[in-house]
Amino acid sequence: MDIPRYERLWLGIGIGTLILFLFITGFMGFSMGLHPTDGMKKTVEPEKVTQSPPFDHPGLRRIGPDEYVLTSVSYVFGYDPMEVTVPAGAKVHFRATSRDVVHGLYIPGTTVNMMVEPGHITEQTFTFNKPGEYLVLCHEYCGSGHHLMQGRIFVTGE
């Protein structure tokens, strides 16, 4: 197969860029721990999830100075808890599941972007540095009230 000289040059630059790109992305992921949202833990049957730990007591729990775990249950069409308040600089470990269909837990303006699936626990960590009222919304279609499904995280100043 005869590949013209200019095409070899063109492909060489392209493939070189691609390898560099993948190397940087992979380095960020595996050396710096910057992976997308995930979570390998599982729950009991989704409809019973609110009867067994940890989702029998959804809410915010302080685990250290400026560090919290937010245990969240999604349902049609809301979150439990609906609202939480943390101080600025709080590092929040999200731990979310659904007791019915697939939902999303998304906070516009941040990198908090999680798929919340029945039977699974999705985990992500985010530090809220800027005070304000953060909107939490569902970004996976879950039924006729999908666009009404929301919550709030209030981040208070020093």
Binding site: T25, H35, P36, T37, D38, G39, M40, K42
Partner: peptide, 13 residues
């Protein structure tokens, strides 16, 4: 499915 739970990061990457 990069934001999905239940799939190890290695396989996503």
């Amino acid at each position: 499915q990069l934001s999905d739970p239940g799939i190890e990061s290695f396989w996503k990457f």
